[in-house]
Amino acid sequence: MNIDIKHVAKLARLRIEDEKLSKFENDMQAIVNMVENLPEIKEELVLDKDNAMVLRHDTAEIRKFTRDELLKNAPHIQAGCLVVPKTVE
């Protein structure tokens, strides 16, 4: 299986610098060649009911964090809001 690195990188929102591209292509090709060797198992995937996740009730909890605490790690804030580039044309 040949892998189109530029296309996959685009899907993953990554860019590979030109000088690294050929090494990346070779490495990724080798990895894909390795992992594609898997046996054919003629079964269907079924949910593992014994290990089903137990979700919490969908109820509101008392706020654990203040707005300021959560914004402390944001790369760019203004007037208590996250600043992002224009997203709607």
Binding site: A9, A12, I16, M28, V32, V35
Partner: peptide, 14 residues
């Protein structure tokens, strides 16, 4: 991200 993380993300995406 470093190169190994990029490889894994791309393998997973693929």
């Amino acid at each position: 991200f470093g190169d190994e993380v990029k490889r894994r993300i791309m393998l997973g995406t693929f």
